[in-house]
Simulated scan of single mutants.
Amino acid sequence: MSDLEAVFRDVHGRAVAVLTRQLGDLDLAEEAVAEAFAVAAATWPERGTPPSPAGWIVTTARNRAVDRLRREAVGTAKLAEVARLQTIAGPEPEQEEVGAVRDDQLRLLFTCCHPALAPEARVALTLRMVGGLTTPEIARAFLVPEATMAARITRAKHKIAKARIPYRVPGDADLPARWSSVLAVVHLVGTEAHSPATGSAPTRPDLAADAIRLARLLVGLRPDEPEARGLLALLLLTTSRAPARALPLDRQDRALWDRGLADEGQELVRECLRIGRPGTYQVQAAIAAVHADAPTWADTDWSQVVALYDLLPQTPVVQLNRAVAVAELDGPSVGLALVDRVDLDRSPVLHAVRADLLRRLDRFAEARAAYDAALARTANEAEQADLRRRRDALD
């Protein structure tokens, strides 16, 4: 990954959030940040990366926005405000906000999850604006074509502008209407961190850190709401495996796992059990905790894993993961029969799972074809390399 790409991954979401607060215009903020990164791409290779890349991007983006507003001859009051912003070297000091958390990305998160937007648009837009994911990455997370996702994000941005949706964390009375979408967004950011759609790395630590930080803020915002606690536990437990993530879970060296993150996640799962109001993220965290308890893949309590999956809504992803656990309990032929009923053809994971089960059944020609199908559906280089290794081992 280049220095500029690393800065983009780390800074994009925060820069858009800061500029959205300062300019009051989500579209203008995103376009200004994009222009700032274009300038960086043209100048940094020759001049070098500045000491504070984030500050450079925010300042350059703000200046570009000011230039655009002047060209478009907007009202004098707005220009006076933007001119004031132009004199600031870095992000503006945080303003007091009653009942709100002092975090630009959290405010942007709630703006993008306004109930006026369609549920799928809320999640997609926030992944783009807060998480800094590209449209292809988001399309992969939703298992839809890229063009469909691009149109969805554009419509959501227009809706925010037309409805004049405010940029703030809502008060207590309005929080429940946005809570599920906000949790879903943070969960999907964590999912992309754990299994990136593209690139050469098996994980994205920048996104994982963002997701965990946002989840901690959400726990602080509603400390008595156990699903936020369960989501934080899930993110901690999955991120704890990142040092070994170059291989699938069944072949990972668990000595490489981050026990500090895993222990914190398991303690949160225990807290959720004491609260006694189970939800989807808490159950997923409990499954991750079962894996964290097991010293090896073979030692996993698969009957408990299957029982926990049975508590979840039976989405195609849940059905696939449950089938993997059933295969460990009842054998690969039983698991394969379940996998073949899952409607998830666009996912490389489904075809990789099929390939592994076919290999275990000595159906090598079919396994090779399934590995090829998985390879055709992923753009992540680390994932591709592992799939090729498994396919070529069939020989």
Rank of each mutant, 00 (worst) to 15 (best):
L188K: 13
P205V: 11
I160V: 14
A193C: 05
P170I: 12
P202E: 00
P202D: 02
G190Y: 01
L125D: 03
G171W: 05
T126Y: 02
L175H: 08
K159A: 12
M149N: 09
A163M: 13
I153V: 15
H158G: 14
L143Y: 10
A147Q: 13
H194Y: 14
I165S: 02
R140A: 10
T203S: 08
M129T: 14
T135A: 12
A156Q: 04
T191P: 00
G171D: 15
F142P: 02
R155N: 08
R152D: 05
R122V: 05
A193F: 02
S181K: 01
V182G: 11
L183M: 10
K157A: 13
V144I: 14
P205I: 10
E192M: 01
P166K: 10
L188Q: 15
L127M: 13
E137D: 09
V130P: 07
P170G: 04
T134A: 12
A201E: 13
R155D: 10
R204S: 12
T135N: 07
A201C: 07
A139N: 01
R168A: 15
A177P: 03
L133K: 07
V144Q: 09
T154G: 12
R178K: 14
D172P: 09
R155T: 12
K162V: 13
A156M: 08
A161T: 14
A163T: 13
Y167M: 07
R178W: 05
L188F: 09
S200N: 03
A184W: 06
P205E: 06
V185M: 04
W179A: 14
R168Q: 15
L175R: 15
M129W: 06
T148D: 10
L125Q: 09
R204E: 06
R178P: 04
W179P: 00
P170A: 06
A151N: 13
S181A: 15
A184V: 05
P176T: 10
S195T: 09
T191I: 04
A141H: 03
A147G: 09
K159M: 11
D206Q: 11
V144Y: 00
A161C: 03
V169N: 06
T135H: 11
D206G: 13
H187C: 13
M149K: 07
P202L: 01
H158N: 14
P136M: 08
I165L: 15
V130I: 12
R128N: 09
S181M: 01
G132Y: 03
M149Y: 03
A156K: 02
Y167K: 05
A161H: 10
R128H: 13
I165R: 04
H194I: 00
A173M: 08
A150T: 14
P176V: 09
F142M: 10
A139Q: 01
L133F: 07
W179H: 06
A124D: 01
P196G: 01
P170T: 09
S181C: 02
A156R: 02
V130S: 06
D174T: 11
V169H: 05
P205C: 05
E137T: 00
H187W: 14
H194E: 03
D172N: 08
A139V: 02
G190K: 00
R178T: 12
S181L: 02
I165F: 02
T198V: 13
V130H: 07
T203L: 03
R122W: 05
T134Q: 12
A124W: 00
A177Y: 07
R178S: 15
Y167S: 02
A150C: 09
T203K: 02
W179T: 13
E192K: 00
I165H: 06
T148N: 06
